[in-house]
Simulated scan of single mutants.
Amino acid sequence: MKLTNFGESYEMNSPSMVINLLPVPGAEWAGKVSIVCRESGLEAELRYHQRRTFFFGFGSTPGVIKGRIFHSKSLTTIYEIDGRWNKKVTIKDVHSGEVRVLYDAVENISRLKTPVVRNPHAVAVTESAAVWGKVSGEILRRNWGGAAKLKAAVEERERGKAATRTTWEPQFFHLRPKKEGGWSCRPKLAAVPAAPITADL
């Protein structure tokens, strides 16, 4: 991701969504996330801890996330991150000891509004809403078995497409390999055309 206004680019991955059926049905994020900003020389490591469930549905705390922000060259930690991604996440300055709220899920989610499909005919088959819509619907209905089956079907279908895909060119961005490795991504237009799905802020 490139923030042209700040002259910074970020390379990152994402956690995996895990759907559990037994002993307690549910969905959660799990895995390790790395975020690198070469311009600032800073990196972040985040670990989404998967809940461990024991007898009668009791187990560890769900939604736990831990991590740190550090200098890429010295590996010196400057901030520690701790909390629950579905509740509240704090960040601690390791030098001063100051702790502040980095993310408050309740506060942020309460302000979200349901996305609106402005133009159903303009929704591409590759839109996230189209690809994962049925999975999301089953999760909202708390049908974990159905969600797991649909998720597996989507992943299998996408793997098949990836195996036969030769080249891919983004519609709104120029994507070019960099000499030092990685990719350079720049917008083709001054402004991206109106999206068929919008969410009012």
Rank of each mutant, 00 (worst) to 15 (best):
F54R: 13
K178A: 13
K2I: 00
V123R: 10
T198D: 15
K161G: 12
P196L: 06
A163I: 09
K113V: 00
L3C: 04
R176D: 15
S16M: 10
A190D: 15
T90L: 00
V125A: 15
E127V: 00
G83I: 00
A122F: 02
V89M: 08
L189V: 09
W183Q: 14
E158S: 12
C185R: 14
A153C: 06
Y10P: 01
S60V: 02
W85D: 03
Y103F: 06
E155H: 11
A194T: 08
K188R: 15
P193V: 09
A130I: 03
V106F: 04
T126P: 00
V36P: 03
W168N: 12
L189W: 12
M1Q: 02
V18G: 01
M12S: 10
V135T: 07
V106K: 09
C37G: 04
C37R: 07
V36E: 13
A147S: 07
A129R: 08
M1T: 02
Y79K: 05
H95D: 08
S128P: 02
K161H: 13
L22F: 10
R165Q: 15
S128D: 14
A152G: 11
A130W: 10
T53A: 06
S16P: 02
N119W: 07
S96T: 15
T77F: 02
K151A: 11
A153G: 10
A199G: 08
P170A: 11
K188W: 11
P25N: 09
L3R: 03
A27K: 07
R111T: 01
G7F: 00
I69L: 10
I19Q: 04
N119M: 06
I197V: 10
R38M: 12
S96P: 01
P170V: 10
A194C: 07
L22M: 09
R165W: 12
R51T: 10
M1E: 04
I109W: 09
Y79H: 07
L201F: 13
L112S: 05
I19F: 03
K188F: 08
L75E: 15
E107Y: 04
L22W: 08
L102H: 00
G7M: 03
K32R: 14
M1Y: 00
N13P: 03
E11I: 01
E80S: 09
W85P: 00
G137K: 10
S34L: 07
F173H: 11
E138N: 13
P177H: 02
W85M: 03
G59D: 08
F70Y: 15
H71G: 09
L175V: 09
V33A: 05
W85L: 02
A130M: 11
V18Y: 05
E155Q: 15
E169I: 14
V116W: 01
A129T: 10
Q171L: 12
A152C: 13
R157T: 11
V99W: 05
V18F: 01
Y48P: 01
A27D: 06
G83R: 02
E158L: 15
L150I: 11
G181H: 11
N108Q: 14
S14C: 02
P177Y: 05
V89N: 02
S136W: 12
E8P: 00
P62C: 03
I91R: 00
G83Y: 03
L42S: 09
